[in-house]
Write a protein that binds this DNA or RNA. Sequence first.
DNA 1: CGAAATTTTGATCACGTTCAACTTCAGTGG
DNA 2: CCACTGAAGTTGAACGTGATCAAAATTTCG
Lengths: 259, 259
Amino acid sequence: MTGVVRKISSARWDSPIVARLRQFIDLGAAEVDTLRALIECELSVERRRDLVVDGYEYSKLSFIKEGFAARYKLLRNGRRQIINVMVPGDIIGLPGSFLDQATFSVIALTDIKLEVCSLEGFVAVCHRQPRFGLMLTWLAVQEAMSYADRVVDIGRRTPVERLAHFLLEIHGRLVLVGASTETSFDLPISQEVISDALGLSVPHLNRMFAKLRTEGLITITDRRIQFIGKKALCLLAHFQPARVARIPTVQPLKHELIA
Amino acid sequence: MTGVVRKISSARWDSPIVARLRQFIDLGAAEVDTLRALIECELSVERRRDLVVDGYEYSKLSFIKEGFAARYKLLRNGRRQIINVMVPGDIIGLPGSFLDQATFSVIALTDIKLEVCSLEGFVAVCHRQPRFGLMLTWLAVQEAMSYADRVVDIGRRTPVERLAHFLLEIHGRLVLVGASTETSFDLPISQEVISDALGLSVPHLNRMFAKLRTEGLITITDRRIQFIGKKALCLLAHFQPARVARIPTVQPLKHELIA
DNA sequence: CGAAATTTTGATCACGTTCAACTTCAGTGG
DNA sequence: CCACTGAAGTTGAACGTGATCAAAATTTCG
């Protein structure tokens, strides 16, 4: 795989994955260091390159630092379904690296920067520091939630609702890692990609975009989405963001206090 | 919540959840005991009862011992989308218990029996026995994979393909916990439920069932599905079961060997 | 500037929904 | 015992949504 490889050197580390984790756990400085130490390298990958290929083994956890990617499945009849669009803070290799062989592919939708960590290394740390295992659990649960939302989207929402929901969801995830303002965000991906994510045809998706625009809910300039009527949009989309709970803190047992 | 509460007493414990776990980890007798000790009670719930309600907090991990359930979302327009059909070995509360408040409901599709464990209790054990944290991660990943398959199903497969894929998937999961033979299984759920899972209307789903029957791929008698042409069915459905990898075993560090 | 990718618009048509009626079956009470 | 009820499965007809195909307009990029 091509890409520029560099070592991590910065003293303070401010990665989107850390922002993701802080949602549900307080990370001590030592833990952040441990996490950073797990990063084997940084990788830059250019647009359109496949990062994970359906049918091959993959055993890394690659944290997206910058850029967009998509997890997808190509069916024999040539149709493509995008499972989810991935943004900074998302993890390539979850769930792929937990399988014998990946059953989905991942493609870079823009040039992206990754922080690569081996799953084995991460698991090794989990044995010594159980909180890391729980972080991984929580991340996997978030992943599942995101897919579940997509199921509802595609299964029972009308095309406009789907699009509205999709935009709100992506926006929410970008806000979380500080990659977007309150009411607007860059969405540097083509309508073809979005249509494959929403299970629609390109022309029809385009009409849905037009609809949102003419109804004064959003404006689009230069692939930047701006929400005009966010409330109305949320209503239209039946948008109900799920907030993940914090990892419960546990009272140490008495004999552990003594030890 | 109604239901009969009993204590666990049997010396040997043979629960579907254990079968699930053994897919990807070797459980020692001590670990099985620890797991069993986590079960607070068994619960019997009758058909049609909601186990988790959208909007409320839930903080249990309930392992399904017997029966079928469904995780679903009800939209304001009255439409229902079933995220997944749950079988013995599946966990109610994953992902719901990891959120502030559940965003999906879970309903019993048949009378079911649960083994209930508090999430807090499980997490407490994770701190002492890191392998439990990893098990939880792996289970969450499987959950995510299952939803991802459903996304592909609904988004880009034709209605017949969807149904075929659904039947094969359920069957595979039943085989895993020993609740089905190689070529047939009981599917004690109505077509309305299946149609809500597949994002189809009831009449159309019914026609797809008819199609599979007339094409000689399955027979149905008394809600028991029998595969006639399993190969052809797999082909039709683009069925490609994902096998989860085993949790990697880790070389202990040197200083840990000494300690 | 030319070539390719992407967005937009239009026209047609098939698929799957909707609505309705009817059948079958299990359970229930007269 | 049979009529009644309700749930589930089945079938039919009509309609509408979104796909498909095609082409133009626009943008991006080599």
